[in-house]
Simulated scan of single mutants.
Amino acid sequence: LESRGGTEAEFRKMVDRCRAAGVDVYADVVINHMQAQDAGVGFGGTPFGKRNHPGLFGPADFHACGRNGNNWIQNFYDRWELQNCDLLGLPDLATESPSVQEKLAGYITRLAEAGVAGVRMDAAKHVPGDDLAAILRKSHGMRYVMHELLINDERTVRFSEYERTGDVMVFPYSFDLASAIRNEKFGDFFRNLMGYPWSQNAVVFVDNHDLERFRDRSNVLSVGDDGALYRLATVFMLAWPYGYPQIYSGYRFTSYDEGPPLLPSGHTAPALNADASCRAPFTCFHRDPQVKVALAFRNLAAGAFRAVHVGYDRSLVAFARESSDGTVPSWAIFHFGSREAQTRVPEGIPGGRWRDLLSGKTFSLHPGTPLRLPARSAHLFVRAE
């Protein structure tokens, strides 16, 4: 657990402080592969080679698929190649090996013993679902698992192969939401939702460290592209009742392979200044005022997980949240366009006094009441007391 982030003792102290503040920590766990350098020394002082990590893994613990002249994956729609060759030159661990499984399970157990509440299984589609299940069975104490599955269709691997051992990160949600916003086609987004994994198994997000580095920006949204549109998309994700939402706070960068800012020691620089303000180039997006309000809306609407009275017209989207007793305690309306829009309160929304959490204002609203929405804006309404 020694890393660029600090020592194991510092890591455990961080986890303890977070838990004391009511914040769970989950770790990004890489079990599909090891690093791609020919040789080096880790932050903990451990020497390593490309397929040789003394005391941990040797050459027999890695796949050597023998394809493409360099063992790299080239055909991502060939299942065997996907799960046996090297991803971008990163040596592929033989996760079917019992001894490899034991060591990886021990790593997960050690994280749990340090107080880590959950793990994100990096590059999960490159590890057979049965191998992941075996590793998790041999580990102890980990309370939550999510699988990173960077897939936009299920031609090679299926979400269901991984749902039996954890939640799944639904990348198509990100692509489809960005496309709907950019192209003003929310009908496609809502239709595609029907083919996603069950909500209780899904992790959704607008952006993450992979998506923000996609060279094709047509179907992704990042804070570096258009901050206002990205913020509004995040508010929509938090308001719409699907999946377990993930808010991404990263750092601004100018080149594809640029890592985080480093201290002279080579360790990652702090994200906060001495006064707890955000230190550039970190974004601290989780602190954004509108995101915090949207989180409050999601929590207030937690008992009303059914979306009703869904309507959309180009850049406008509206929906209500319905409780199990059929009442509507909250509703939302979004305008993703670049110019002011005029619309009306949708049919089906109960008349009465509604408080918009984003503006803090209270309105008397009934079906048909005119509404003016500035460019790229939203209302998150809850019943006024």
Rank of each mutant, 00 (worst) to 15 (best):
E163A: 07
R164V: 15
G351W: 02
R182I: 14
G227K: 12
F285R: 08
S97C: 11
V170N: 02
V203C: 09
L272A: 07
S99L: 12
G243C: 00
G45V: 12
A123I: 02
A105V: 00
P260N: 09
A124S: 15
Q246S: 13
D86A: 07
N201S: 14
P374F: 06
G5H: 10
G129F: 02
D131K: 00
A320L: 08
K292H: 10
A105N: 01
F319M: 09
V235W: 00
I73M: 08
Y144F: 15
T109I: 04
V220I: 14
P367M: 04
T165Q: 13
G66L: 07
F334G: 10
A320I: 08
T283G: 11
P367R: 00
E258K: 03
R355C: 12
W354A: 09
G311H: 03
R217C: 05
R306P: 06
L316H: 05
T7V: 04
A202C: 05
V100T: 06
E163L: 01
I151M: 15
F285G: 12
A178M: 02
V116G: 12
V308L: 02
V203E: 03
N152H: 04
S160P: 00
G45I: 11
S255C: 08
A332E: 09
D275N: 13
N32I: 02
Q35N: 13
A384F: 08
A239S: 15
D207N: 13
R215K: 14
L177N: 00
Q200A: 15
I135W: 03
I333E: 05
W72H: 15
N192V: 01
Y107S: 06
W72Y: 14
F236Q: 08
F297C: 10
L177Q: 03
G311P: 06
D78A: 09
A60M: 07
V168A: 01
F171S: 00
R191I: 00
R12A: 13
C284V: 11
I135T: 03
M146S: 11
E184P: 00
E8N: 08
